[in-house]
């Protein structure tokens, strides 16, 4: 039952996002709409990076690299093959199936790469891991810069504009639910144990390498999918988009939201995406581009006043009226576990 209820929540969420899809662009001007779309893509990026950096405690700085891989793989598939294909489904459905396949392929490619990079590098800790992942992100960017089939430095134009509001927010929603479900399980507790004390985690029987790599791979998958969303929204890809500044942006969202808080990652992704745009009118007054200076200053002030980020390690379910839901969720989890254990013996 609990399983069905969760499935129901996911279904309702996705249907709501898709249902809003044709309405959303009508409600606001195109500029506002594009900000909303980038914010949604950033939510997926921040939530998935939070799984690695915040919840598992492995400081990765290569998220833009995974995003690039997913973006390029899915964009290459759609422009070269999928947009010319016709599986013979009704008109609207064609595009949906093909886009889903392309996004999935991008995510998988990114996850596979995450596995390859993660397996050797997650033996490293702290600063060393950060540097290795930073280097990895740059390698990806330079490699793409030199692959002529995807346009190299000229970039990759003519990607079909398949991303819409429904895709972006449905996927953001799925990423949030995925991370929440993981964290509510014993696997989630193992990830937290790795973050808290790796030696102690190992001593209690957690296969730390496996859990770190798994978190890394799941993070890479969602980064790849959001890369695909990004590519099919902008309809143009350029390797410069995925430089380390992009990785830092996502890290800032995670840190500002609170390392280890999914709620924080979502709020910070929305807030920071909006803030950069809200500061734009300032430029017209000052006649100089102080926008990024002010943006950075605000980050400094925010971190000084709230060193643990907006939410620390807390979630929405830890606050006032929302607490009830958490208790229900715990009860559900217990109820779901009990019969399953009996069956296992």
């Amino acid at each position: 039952m609990a399983y069905l209820k969760n499935f129901g929540v996911i279904l309702v969420g996705i249907v709501a996002c898709v249902g809003l899809s044709p309405v959303a662009p009508e409600l606001m001007n195109p500029y506002l709409f594009s900000i909303l779309m980038y914010a949604g893509i950033n939510i997926t990026l921040a939530v998935s990076l939070n799984l690695v950096n915040g919840l598992t405690g492995q400081f990765s700085m290569g998220h833009a690299g995974f995003m690039a891989v997913g973006g390029y793989v899915s964009a290459f598939l759609t422009t070269e093959y999928l947009s010319k294909m016709n599986p013979g489904l009704p008109a609207g459905l064609n595009e949906i199936v093909l886009f889903a396949a392309a996004l999935y392929a991008g995510g998988l490619a990114s996850a596979a790469l995450g596995y390859l990079v993660g397996l050797p590098s997650l033996r490293l800790k702290g600063d060393y891991l950060a540097i290795v992942t930073l280097g990895f992100g740059e390698i990806i960017r330079v490699l793409i810069l030199n692959i002529d089939a995807v346009g190299g430095a000229r970039g990759m134009p003519g990607i079909p504009k398949w991303t819409n509001f429904g895709w972006v927010y449905a996927i953001a929603f799925i990423s949030i639910i995925t991370v929440r479900r993981i964290m509510a399980s014993r696997h989630g507790r193992a990830l937290l144990a790795v973050r808290e004390d790796e030696i102690a985690a190992e001593a209690t029987g957690v296969n730390t390498t496996r859990y770190k790599v798994t978190a890394f791979v799941i993070g890479a998958f969602f980064a790849g999918v959001s890369g695909g969303l990004f590519a099919h929204f902008l309809t143009y890809l350029n390797p410069q988009t995925f430089d380390f500044n992009r990785s830092f942006e996502i890290i800032i969202m995670v840190v500002l939201g609170g390392m280890g808080s999914t709620t924080g990652a979502v709020v910070a992704a929305l807030f920071l995406t909006a803030l950069r745009e809200l500061l734009r009118p300032l430029q017209e007054i000052t006649r100089l581009d102080f926008r990024m200076v002010i943006y950075s200053l605000m980050l400094v002030i925010l971190m000084l006043t709230r060193p643990n980020g907006f939410f620390g390690t807390k979630e929405l379910s830890d606050f006032g009226p929302f607490r009830r839901f958490k208790r229900d969720a715990l009860k559900d989890a217990a109820a779901a576990d009990a019969p399953a254990e009996g069956a296992r013996g």
Binding site: A190, L192, A193, E196, D197, A200, T204, G205, V206, T313
Partner: peptide, 26 residues
């Protein structure tokens, strides 16, 4: 392990149940 190595941000109960992480006899 030396220096206790407890999971500081988890509750006492969570720490203890993690000790039984690998057990099949729930």
């Amino acid at each position: 392990p030396e220096g206790r190595g407890i999971f500081a941000n988890m509750t006492v109960e969570e720490n203890l149940t993690l000790g039984a992480f690998l057990r099949k006899d729930k």
